[in-house]
């Protein structure tokens, strides 16, 4: 894993992060935002289950971000 971001921020005065890097592709960022928000906003699967699986997946893939 690199110690420095590999892409710049597309949002002025913001440090590079997932959102500001994705902002290089605004249409893609918007489409992702809608999908992810709908996923988290829906109640078919409870929040606790979603959060546990998200955290476990981050651990398994060794994603410290």
């Amino acid at each position: 894993m690199s110690t420095k971001p590999r892409v710049s921020s597309a949002i002025p005065e913001q440090t590079p992060n997932f959102g500001s890097a994705l902002a290089h592709q605004p249409g893609l960022a918007e489409a992702f935002g809608k999908l992810y928000a709908t996923f988290w906003g829906s109640n078919e699967l409870d929040h606790r289950t979603k959060e546990i699986t998200r955290m476990r997946n981050a651990r398994v893939t060794d994603c410290g971000f």
Binding site: G27, L28, L35, F39
Partner: peptide, 21 residues
Amino acid sequence: IRPELRDLYRNFYGKLWDDEL
């Protein structure tokens, strides 16, 4: 089976191809 998520996923994944990013 989850049509609202499927449609949003189509839109997200499809953007790569539709817009030739």
